[in-house]
Design a protein around this nucleic acid. Sequence first.
DNA 1: GCAAAAATAATTGCATACGATTCTTGTGCA
DNA 2: TGCACAAGAATCGTATGCAATTATTTTTGC
Lengths: 237, 237
Amino acid sequence: MNIADQIYSAADSANQDRAQAIRDNLRDAIVDRRLAPGTKLSEGEVGTLFDVSRTVARAALQMLSFEGLVRIERNRGAFVANPSPEEARQVFASRRLIEPGIAIAACGRVTATDIAAFRAQLDEEGRFIAERGPTARRSEIKASGDFHLLLASVAGNAILQRFMEELVARSSLVIALYGRSGVSACGHSEHTEIVGAVESGDSGLASRLMLHHIDHIEADLDLRVRAGPALREALKF
Amino acid sequence: MNIADQIYSAADSANQDRAQAIRDNLRDAIVDRRLAPGTKLSEGEVGTLFDVSRTVARAALQMLSFEGLVRIERNRGAFVANPSPEEARQVFASRRLIEPGIAIAACGRVTATDIAAFRAQLDEEGRFIAERGPTARRSEIKASGDFHLLLASVAGNAILQRFMEELVARSSLVIALYGRSGVSACGHSEHTEIVGAVESGDSGLASRLMLHHIDHIEADLDLRVRAGPALREALKF
DNA sequence: GCAAAAATAATTGCATACGATTCTTGTGCA
DNA sequence: TGCACAAGAATCGTATGCAATTATTTTTGC
């Protein structure tokens, strides 16, 4: 199998580090589910794909492994992460701990510009929900994640923001894997409510809404261990 | 200046990845303040020190930069991080958000073995506090951090545990930089109280004690911007 | 004597090379 | 037919080499 046609070779992003640009690209591909969990990401292939040497491809994969999106096995290579139900639970437990606090912090720092950004974000979310098809579904998951990242950036804590980047990315992977239905419309309305609470400065409400929102997301998952994937895994896929 | 004599070349740790072993070593050296903030960590020097090529030395430095212990500037190299007061505040804000939750989680999962480990940890802490001198002081900071890491491991969430590893390491750096006195004895007694609360399963108490404990640690810092370092920084050091 | 500029040295970014490990495939034997 | 094993291919881990960038020293001009 070739991963080439599953990735659009980027040209966007920062001009800083090439490895970082590759990481961003691969992360998007993983979160968007264009790269299925378990897919092998060989250094050589990634390198030729992005037109760099194995050295920098390797660095990009290393970064992704720190974020938990890629699993690296010594002498075997890198694979798109395949989070277990237990891992999924830990991701959401972490979010339940962190995000209400982020919502509270955001209440005290939100500006008019931020509110405008939120409105734009919510609009985009709404558009994807209106559309049908798997592509729109993926975009919707991504947009939903972007909402949480926007809130984290408003909160003004760079460390928590980075933690959230990791958690949101892993959540997207988990939702793609274990997501059941599309209560996403409900999620969208919850986002709207949260923005309202933040805008009015009601930190208690914002915090509570956020907690319920995370609970709802997790409640939509089917985290029972499935025979299928587990078996495949046991058979080394 | 040579960093060679500030690092004891390790032989411990896992035999997994060499880069990881080097990272662990450098991290200890940074957290223990054997490597002063701002110190340049050149790839070549690190490589020869640990008897590896620049390639793996570079990977180790990369890891440390992900943890925020090292700052990498393109084409200039890696330097031991020099956290600003604002960064310090963010570190503690993050801990205030996460650690009470960890304490609560630990209440529900703590075992007799864990309690024994806590007792041993507290004993060691006590020994370092009894001693005098800068070496004991460093060991004390480290031991204090280890307590929080132990608690995080008991809580049983691998993701939060990794976050805490980063936060504790950065805290140690911050304390070494901005720490004022030695209210550490007080910190030790607080650790003891927290263990007591966790042992008795009183999650509310454990959470409250933890929050106060973090507040106390931060209260001992002098986070006013100092003229000295800022000036030096402005003059490119 | 001192600032500016040029030359030299040191260091990083990246590509490539090579031994070591793992995966694949084909063959022999039961 | 099916399984064990070995040769070959592919891939990884790491060292090294070279161009580009940055730091340092020396030289030059005033």
